[in-house]
Design a binder for these strands. Structure first.
Lengths: 254, 254
DNA sequence: GTACACCTTAACGTTGCGTAAAGGTCAACA
DNA sequence: TGTTGACCTTTACGCAACGTTAAGGTGTAC
C-alpha cells in the first residue's frame, strides 16, 4: 500500500505538516517521490512512523528518537530507562507544584487570618528563588516531599497533631544541627542536643528504640544519597557530622 | 534600596536577560532609569518580582501572571483552581506515560537476556559524552551521585566488596518485589522473600536487628517521600506493599 | 589613564510544529 | 474540454520564554 502525505497523516492521526517536518529533519523520509514531487510512503515508512509516534508519545525529543530508530546498535532499553528517570523527576516536580498551589489557595481563602502563613510561604518561596540555581533540584525535591508527606499524613496512622509535632521536631533538628555544626564538635552540647532531638523524632516513626539501630541509621545517612542530600543541603558534611554526633550519643563511639 | 538589573537578578536568582524581557513585555518595569539609561528597581519592584516568580514557579504563563498581578479585581483563587486542574491532568498523563515506559522496558527485557546490563553501562557512558552539552547538568548530577557514593564507600567502614553486595541486594530486592507485587499478596512466598532480602540488606547498615525497628522503617518507607519515591518508581503502591510484607515478616501483623 | 565589570539595544536561535501564502496536480463532472 | 475542488509542493513567519552573541556606552577603582 502506498500513501501520500495526507493519507498517511490521517492513518496515523497526525497532520501532514508534521510529516513534512519529519522529512525535513530527516527522521522519516518518504520511500520515493512521484513525477510531480509528491511524497509517497510505503509499508516500511508506516512501521517506522509508528515507532516514532510511540517514542513521541513518551515525550522523547525528536533528535533522540532519530538516534534510537536509526542506529541498530542503539540500546533502546537504556534510552527508555534514562527517559523514565526524567519522567519521574517531572512527576515529582508536578507534585511540588500541586502542593504549592493548594497551599496558596488555602492561604488566600483564609484571608487575613492566615497572613502569618502567607508571609512564611512567601519567605520560603523567596529562599527557593534565591537558591534556585544553586540547589534547584534539591530544594524542589524537598518541597515536594513535604507536600506528599502531608497528603499521606491522613493515610497513615499518625494524627495531624502528631504529624505537626514530628515536622516541628525535624525543623528544630535542622536548626540545632546547623548551629552545632558551626562549633565543629560532635561531642559538644549542641550536637548532643541535636542527636537527642533526632532520637525523639525517630520515636515518632519507630515504635521501639535501640541505640544500635539509631547509630546504624546515622551511618545510613552518610551512605545513602537520598538522606545525605537532605541533611547536607547547603552545608556539605552535615550528614557526617550528625552521624558522628549520634554515634557518640548512642555510646557507639567516644 | 535600589538595584540595577544584575543586582536584582542575583537577589532573585534569575538572569538579567529575564528582567529585560519582563520589562519588554511590560510585566515588570523598573521604577526609573538613570541618566545613562540604566534600569533602576526599587522595593516595590522587588515585591512584584517575587509575586511574578511565585506564579512562574507554578508554571502559570507570563501573560496570565500579568493579568493576575495587574488587575486587583482578578480572581486569583479561580485562576489557581483552574491551573490546579491542569496540573492534575498533566500528572495523570505522566503516570500514564510512566506505566507505558515500564511496560515497554519489561517487554523489551523479555526479549533480550542478560547482556542488557553491559549494554546499559556502555550506553550510559556514551550518552553522557554525547549529551553532555544538552543534558550536562542533569547527567552530571546523576553521575556525580554515583561517584560520590563510591567515594564514600571508602570513607565508611564498608569494604568495596561489601558495598557491591549491598548494591546487588538492593537490586535483587527491587526485582523480587516487582514480581511479588504482581501477585498482590504481601503474605505470599515472593513477598516474604523480598522482606527477608530486605532484612539482609538492612543488616549491612545496621549492626543489630530488631523486628520492631524493621517494621518501623517499613512504615517510614510509606511516610517519607524520599523512600517512597525510591520504591514506588514506576509502580505506585510498592512502598506500601513492601511495608505490609515486612509487617507480616516481622510478625507485627498477620 | 586605563582596566574591568557593568550597562544598553538589536537580533538570531531554541522545539515542534500551526498557519498562511503562492502556486502546481489530479480526478471527476458538465 | 474546461472547470471545480481537493490535494500536493516550497517558503517562511509565529509561538514561549528566554539564552546567547555582538557592538558599543558607562562607572569606578587603582
Amino acid at each position: 500500500m502506498e500513501y501520500t502525505v495526507q493519507k498517511l497523516a490521517r492513518l496515523a492521526g497526525i497532520s501532514s505538516r508534521t510529516l513534512r517536518y519529519y522529512d525535513e529533519i530527516g527522521i522519516l523520509k518518504p520511500a520515493r517521490t512521484n513525477s510531480s514531487g509528491y511524497r509517497i510512503y510505503g509499508g516500511a515508512e508506516v512501521n517506522k512512523l509508528q515507532q516514532i509516534l510511540f517514542y513521541r508519545e513518551l515525550e522523547v525529543p525528536l533528535d533522540a528518537i532519530k538516534e534510537i530508530i536509526d542506529s541498530p546498535s542503539f540500546d533502546g532499553i537504556a534510552a527508555l530507562t534514562d527517559h523514565r528517570e526524567k519522567l519521574l523527576e517531572r512527576r515529582s516536580r508536578l507534585d511540588h507544584l500541586l502542593a504549592n498551589v493548594d497551599k496558596t489557595i488555602e492561604a488566600a481563602k483564609g484571608g487575613a487570618k492566615m497572613s502569618d502563613k502567607e508571609k512564611f510561604e512567601g519567605f520560603k518561596q523567596k529562599m527557593i528563588e534565591e537558591n534556585e540555581q544553586k540547589y534547584g533540584t534539591e530544594i524542589r525535591e524537598k518541597y515536594g516531599e513535604e507536600a506528599v508527606e502531608q497528603s499521606y499524613a491522613k493515610v497513615k496512622g499518625m494524627t495531624e497533631e502528631q504529624h505537626r509535632e514530628a515536622e516541628r521536631l525535624a525543623e528544630e533538628i535542622m536548626d540545632v544541627l546547623s548551629n552545632a555544626k558551626a562549633t565543629g564538635d560532635p561531642a559538644g552540647e549542641l550536637a548532643q542536643k541535636a542527636a537527642g532531638l533526632h532520637k525523639k523524632w525517630l520515636m515518632h516513626y519507630w515504635g521501639s528504640y535501640s541505640p544500635e539501630a539509631h547509630a546504624g541509621l546515622a551511618q545510613m545517612y552518610v551512605d545513602d544519597e537520598r538522606f545525605r542530600e537532605y541533611y547536607d543541603k547547603g552545608h556539605p558534611g552535615t550528614a557526617e557530622f550528625l552521624r558522628d554526633a549520634i554515634q557518640i550519643f548512642t555510646g557507639m563511639k567516644k
